[in-house]
Design a protein around this nucleic acid. Structure first.
Lengths: 239, 239
DNA sequence: GTGGCGCAAAAGTCTGACTTTTTGAGCACA
DNA sequence: TGTGCTCAAAAAGTCAGACTTTTGCGCCAC
């Protein structure tokens, strides 16, 4: 699926990055550039570039005479799409999925409210089309088709909000939705209530009703959170 | 303020990065590594590492036979703290500040709600202390002292939410708050209503009242948005 | 006009030498 | 015994130059 032969640099990065985010080298571990270069059978130049990129993601810190130190998790640039992808592919995928879903639940309602104010006619049309597409694929195990429309729907809302920070979460939301379909609940059709909510959000945005768009999207988000609680209960249940 | 002599690599990055985010090289511009290396008087190795990092931020794309192309703004990793810092230091600071404030207004209320559920006793104590500090410095042009407590307050709330994505926005919020004090409204004392709201949020979190913590924080956020509208009206006023 | 051929430009990679910073061990001295 | 200084080694940082690979584009034949 992902491009295979796009330079040594990228290949080493795609090997070392996931290893670090997966905790294979626990925080505080010290690596040495030369040693890594040998291990991956590349020149020091290539390995230095890899380390520089990992450093820019705050996954590691490079210090003279010490080496390349893995940083504690709290310092990682967890918004870097690359880091998100690595973590979603790794062991703490559930934790990551939960974090991202909570983030969605905070951002998307506000984005929908803004979209109701700012969406262009084209965006409204596209949104309605997506909602209809979701309805059309909501029954009969057409999960892949449904997913496509679902991803497009949420991306359009985030784009139409007119806020670039929101817009850039489109990829993240798409990953979360795809992950849900492909790993967790791919055996049953989507919740009919959720489908209806999407249609109504499209309506509200089209009519410029910000408050309603926000409230309805909040309902969608709450549904997603509930779903998550069922599949993977939160770390500390209320005592 | 910022460290001065931390390697050639970092210095060149801190020179080229802001230039790109400032639009000095408009999207689509093509740079050549060798030329850049000459311009900055560094070796190709150093310049290649810089380009790699810029590439990992999606600011540029490097392709053989073509060169290093500046990417369109929509593709930049706008959540990268480095990119945020560069943009806040540059010309479209107001736009950036607005985007971030809207993001805050979406995230912080939800974070406060979670904090009410998850905050430890220590965090509650620290929060109350910050709120009291804000009260103590809210009059008599003690803006710097107020800022310190304000930043700490919001960082604690984001941390206490227990969501790592929220927690990592602490630095961003701190930048926004600092920017407000240092650039925009440093002539007058903070809004007394906002101060009170902070105190009440601390209370709500301490009492574990999630709904109230969320609602109160939403009020704080709305205040910040209103303030922004007064200082720099939004691009398209409602027709 | 269309399609293929080949050139050259630019990034990519490798190697080896040299510099700089920093740590920690060893030693001298109190 | 403990404190502080010196110094050597370790690792990253920097540089220069040669070579490889990809690829856009011009040119030419058809």
């Amino acid at each position: 699926m992902t491009a295979q032969a796009r330079g040594l640099h990228a290949r080493v990065l795609d090997s070392l990055g996931p290893a670090i985010t997966a905790g294979e080298y626990p925080p505080g571990s010290v690596l040495r550039t030369d040693e890594l270069a040998q291990r991956f059978e590349v020149s020091r130049s290539v390995m230095r570039e890899v380390v520089r990129v990992l450093e820019s993601m705050h996954l590691v810190a490079s210090r003279r005479r010490v080496g390349v130190t893995v940083r504690p998790t709290e310092e990682w640039n967890v918004y870097d799409p690359q880091v998100i992808r690595w973590r979603l592919a790794g062991a703490d995928r559930p934790r990551q999925l939960r974090s991202l879903t909570v983030l969605r639940s905070a951002v998307e309602p506000v984005a929908a409210g803004l979209a109701a104010r700012n969406a262009t006619a084209e965006q409204c049309a596209a949104l309605t089309e997506c909602a209809l597409g979701m309805v059309a694929t909501s029954r009969g195990r057409q999960l892949e088709g449904y997913l496509v429309h679902d991803m497009a729907f949420h991306r359009i809302v985030l784009d139409a909000s007119g806020n670039e920070m929101f817009a850039r979460l489109g990829d993240v939301v798409a990953e979360v939705l795809a992950g849900r379909t492909h790993h967790d609940v791919m055996f049953e059709d989507p919740d009919p209530a959720a489908v209806t909510l999407h249609v109504r959000v499209a309506e509200a945005v089209r009519e410029g009703d910000a408050a309603r768009a926000e409230a309805l999207t909040r309902e969608i988000a709450e549904g997603a959170l509930r779903e998550l609680d069922i599949l993977a209960p939160p770390p500390a249940p209320a005592s």
